[in-house]
Amino acid sequence: MKLGLQLGYWGAQPATNHAELVTAAESAGFDSIFTAEAWGSDAYTPLAWWGSATERVRLGTSVLQLSARTPTACAMAALTLDHLSGGRHIVGLGVSGPQVVEGWYGQRFAKPLARTREYVDIMRQVWAREAPVTSAGPHYPLPLSGADTTGLGKPLKPITHPLRADIPVMLGAEGPKNIALAAEIADGWLPLFYTPRLADTYNDWLDEGFARAGARRSREDFEICATAQIVITDDRAASYEAIKPFLALYMGGMGSEDTNFHAEVYRRMGYADVVDEVTALFRADRKEEAARIIPDEVVQDSAIVGDVEHVREQIKVWEAAGVTTMLVSPGSVAEIDRLATLS
């Protein structure tokens, strides 16, 4: 099992210890570091900043929001970072949700799977640099034409020759159709809330994608880089209480009341009643109460909390389920060093 350091996105202020965590993760043998974005800090700037102090670890995004950049702009950023890092970049992409896409980026959310497919195709054209980049659309037509354009747009190749003609792409996917799409067109899957209990279900969805004509990968060379909250402790109860506000935010606040893809993940796990109650409380601005009513077993389903032996055994369970990398968020160098001895 490989470990990746998930730095995430910033809260109200930038984190103050990411430099030392990145250095420690590389020294401890971690495979990768990842950054994220929501509607505050972006993913690429800190990844390049902290990545410049590394030599070996892969540098990934988990995830970039499609609507934040046109596909060519994303491909430009990726090929730039790939050059600067000596070929260590991983592009992790996700569609986000309508609340963010329409409310923050002012973009349309329709047909997220078709948009993802078109977006990735354009990026790969840029990196391959075999011909000027074109797309028939309908989501990202290149060159743009029509009555409201100058008519002067022309297909272009990137000026800079990419270091690699095929930078790895992973998809942050949560629903069955999107997970199948990841297996079909991507090099890996980035689940945010993963439970080994549903591994057979996930594998069915992945197998659907692997079986499609033209699928890029097979199960043997496809990566599953799952976000995993791992806490080594003898006080499970305290750790559960610390994790529950995070779960309440994603169940009740990350999306609209009727459209929340994160909440749907927990519904599929069998916690529909919990999701409904958490959502109602969170929307009523009773956030602390929303966190308190989450049962411990909900935390246990997608996190690993316990003593060293329990954590070691659970890591084996995740590995047996098909996870190739666990993306963890330790808060200190000491935690990084302890985790490195368990994988």
Rank of each mutant, 00 (worst) to 15 (best):
K2M: 06
L7P: 04
P14T: 10
T16H: 02
A24H: 07
A28L: 08
G29D: 06
D31K: 10
I33Y: 03
F34W: 15
A36Q: 01
D42N: 10
D42M: 09
D42I: 10
T45L: 15
T45A: 12
A53K: 06
E55V: 07
E55G: 13
E55W: 09
G60R: 05
S62T: 05
V63Q: 01
Q65S: 09
L66D: 00
P71A: 10
A75K: 01
A75C: 10
A78Y: 03
T80P: 03
L81E: 06
L81D: 07
S85G: 03
R88K: 12
H89I: 12
H89M: 13
I90T: 11
V91W: 00
V91Y: 02
V91R: 03
G94L: 06
G94E: 05
V95T: 15
S96A: 15
G97D: 10
E102C: 06
W104V: 12
Y105C: 04
R108C: 00
F109L: 08
A110R: 00
P112H: 02
L113D: 06
A114Q: 14
R115W: 06
T116M: 11
R117M: 12
Y119W: 04
D121C: 01
Q125N: 07
V126A: 03
V126M: 11
W127T: 05
A128R: 01
V133G: 02
H139I: 04
H139Q: 04
H139M: 02
L142E: 11
A147M: 04
K157A: 14
R164V: 12
M170Q: 08
G172K: 01
E174A: 15
E174Y: 05
G175H: 08
K177S: 08
N178M: 15
E184F: 04
G188F: 09
W189Y: 05
F193R: 05
Y194L: 13
N203W: 13
D207N: 14
R217G: 15
E220S: 12
F222Y: 07
E223C: 08
A228G: 02
Q229I: 15
I230D: 02
T233K: 09
R236L: 15
K244E: 06
K244H: 07
A248P: 00
Y250V: 07
M251T: 02
M254N: 13
S256R: 11
N260F: 02
V265L: 09
R267V: 15
R267K: 14
Y271M: 08
A272I: 01
D273S: 13
V275G: 05
A280Y: 00
R283A: 13
P295H: 06
V298N: 01
V305S: 07
H310Q: 13
Q314P: 10
T325Y: 03
L327Q: 14
G331I: 07
G331Q: 12
L342G: 12
